[in-house]
């Protein structure tokens, strides 16, 4: 009986395990092997064992610096906008409107990020927002193809990913806790800081993690809204693989990016664990 169960479970898990191995571990292994190889004179990959690619990483220092600047800033900006929105949806909106508003938050996700980012080109371009600003007296304001435009695109693109975990955390919030805080003498803003915020931290951490990790690999939004002038590691990778076809160096850059992401996840895990140690309502997500 137990034997059958074990075998049954193993059988059930096999597709998942194979899937995981084929789609995640295998490519990762290939990238790792490539990163120690050499570039052939016409590009591509030649087998070898050299650390030259890793030694060359400083050549993409600017890309890493840009990514490691804009990813946290973008995450923070998304958080600052997503939190009030999630709070509004979870706490303030009546049940009647909630579903509709939640759907409105998701709807943009049904369209390709490429098309949505293109819409921003028109919004931020000369005949969009700047034209409106010009009509009220603010002449010659240029928004497109700047780090600001990239930030706008990032916040816009990743907002739902930030809104939903926070929404879920706030949805679970027992509003009587806020009444209890008020009853004990806490004015609204203080009960927000002392009760609401800490209790929604799991959502904040999860959302920030999701957005941060995805931003680390972002290349589309800087390419479209940054006018090619804002250069992320993701853009460096695209260029290395598709333009100069320097696969070994591209692989080394990719490995470095993965390592940075792993470190970030490790820090996240540690923070959540420490947090969860004092809580029954926090679980790893």
């Amino acid at each position: 009986m137990a034997m059958t169960q074990t075998r049954g479970r193993a059988l059930l898990l096999t597709p998942a395990a194979l899937w995981y191995a084929a789609l995640l571990l295998l490519p990762l292994a290939v990238v790792l092997i490539f990163s120690f190889g050499e570039r052939t004179p016409i590009g591509g990959y030649a087998p070898g064992f050299t650390l030259a690619q890793y030694a060359n990483l400083p050549a993409r220092m600017a890309a890493f610096r840009n990514t490691l600047t804009l990813a946290p800033v973008g995450t923070l900006a998304a958080l600052l906008i997503a939190y009030p929105l999630a709070y509004f949806l979870a706490v303030r909106v009546s049940v009647r409107w909630k579903t509709l508003l939640l759907v409105l938050v998701i709807v943009p996700f049904w369209t390709s990020i490429l098309i949505r980012s293109y819409a921003w080109i028109f919004l931020l371009g000369g005949k969009g927002l700047p034209a409106l600003l010009a009509s009220i007296g603010f002449e010659d304001i240029r928004l497109l193809n700047s780090p600001f435009a990239v930030l706008v695109g990032i916040v816009y693109g990743y907002l739902p990913l930030m809104v939903f975990p926070i929404y879920v955390a706030l949805e679970k919030l027992d509003l009587r806790l806020l009444e209890a805080a008020a009853d004990l003498g806490a004015p609204p803003w203080r009960s927000f800081v002392q009760i609401t915020l800490p209790l929604s931290m799991p959502g904040v951490l999860t959302g920030s993690m999701l957005v941060f990790i995805l931003l680390m690999g972002e290349f589309l939004i800087p390419a479209i809204l940054g006018g090619g002038k804002v250069f992320f590691v993701g853009n460096a990778l695209v260029d290395l693989f598709l333009q100069s076809r320097n696969w070994p160096f591209g692989s080394a850059v990719a490995v470095a990016l993965v390592v940075i992401m792993l470190i970030t996840v490790a820090i996240y895990t540690r923070v959540v664990k420490r947090y969860a140690a004092g809580r029954d309502d926090v679980a790893m997500m």
Partner: peptide, 17 residues
């Protein structure tokens, strides 16, 4: 020009500058 690694690096430095 298609395969010269230096041109690729010049471009990368230009774009990330």
């Amino acid at each position: 020009t298609l395969t010269d690694p230096n041109r690729a690096e010049v471009m990368a430095r230009f774009k990330s500058a």
